[in-house]
Design a protein around this nucleic acid. Structure first.
Lengths: 197, 197
DNA sequence: GTCTATATTCCGATAGAC
DNA sequence: GTCTATCGGAATATAGAC
């Protein structure tokens, strides 16, 4: 019978690493910060994970999957129509991003810096999807990638822009949450309108 | 008569700093990289700018203005209607971002990390703008900030998502440029559709 | 103004005791 | 497995000659 109330040392380190890396990025993170946040000693970090880089890669892989893994089940759902798929995506993402507001900036910024390289060929996964078929049937002229930029932009961009908007006095934390809750119902409507124009 | 072909040392450092900071972020940048990129010695950097932080702040201020300064002239243009304003914004941003594709990720990521704090109260600048009036007249129910998230998301997000999309094999450099050129004409249509729905 | 050399702090990683 | 102590290198910043 495993103890439930206390995580293993390895997991404590990883959980601390998730927080610190996401907040400060790879270069801004010091392994000492992670150790302190985990309540353990610096040496243990290198005992469990060989290096800062290795630990980062484990965390980063999780985060990439967390950010983009939501898509494929929806893309391949053959029981829902287009507008229902937009609802699913809006709801799944807004739920997850309200819990993890700094995730997109972290992942996209680190991918841009090349600190992490994975080769996941999604091109065919997307072009063969049910969603791609439904889009093509609805509007054969639009490029699916063009549309995907728009859909994801509508969902994800507010979370990326929020720190700037806050500094400029354009929104507060509670206002932002309300805006995102309202956005759930707006995004499917907007995405449909975009697709038909 | 000033020489035109050779920039001053101070400007050479600053120009190098713009490149390196934008590429690697504040924490990932070493002052040695900037010095080497500028073709000068490390000591000169501290001679002209007191510290890495000071130099960063000067660069960052420029970049924030470059990213958000495009908006106010359009917001206060009383000679254009809504759809024309959307056209202006799409064209200005896409021109600028094709020249500076890494600018948004850099600025928004560094603002999120709190490496830079400016207090620019834009709240009133926006709510008092001609654009805000025109939006309210067109659709009194939509929150202007909600709409601004959408408009900027449509324009800016592709540039933030591009590195990920490239790694996933969803786009190439030349494909991306074509998509963005097509996007100029699409965004005004989409923004209008969003506003009316 | 510009350089070389160096002071000083910081950080990732390891040695070695328990 | 976990800790303390420390090594070795890297990074910012400055001293001082020219």
């Amino acid at each position: 019978m495993k103890k439930l109330k206390e995580a293993s040392t390895e997991e404590k380190i990883k959980e601390a690493a998730r927080r610190v890396f996401t907040e400060k990025g790879y270069s801004g993170t010091r392994t000492r910060d992670i150790a302190q946040e985990a309540g353990i000693n610096l040496a243990l970090l290198n005992y469990y994970f060989r290096s800062k880089q290795k630990l980062f890669e484990e965390v980063m892989l999780e985060k990439v999957i967390k950010l983009f893994g939501l898509l494929s089940p929806v893309f391949y759902n053959s029981d829902s129509n287009l507008e229902e798929k937009f609802e699913e995506i809006a709801n799944l993402y807004i739920d997850m991003l309200l819990e993890n507001p700094t995730l997109p900036t972290f992942v996209l910024s680190e991918l841009a810096k090349g600190h992490f390289a994975i080769e996941i060929p999604l091109k065919e996964m997307i072009t063969n999807s049910v969603l791609a078929d439904q889009i093509k049937k609805q509007n054969p002229d639009i490029d699916p990638i063009q549309f995907l930029f728009s859909l994801l932009g509508l969902v994800v961009f507010p979370f990326i822009g929020k720190p700037a908007f806050r500094q400029f006095g354009l929104t507060t934390e509670t206002d932002f949450t309300k805006l995102m809750q309202a956005r759930r119902r707006l995004i499917p409507v907007w995405a449909t309108a975009i697709l038909h124009s």
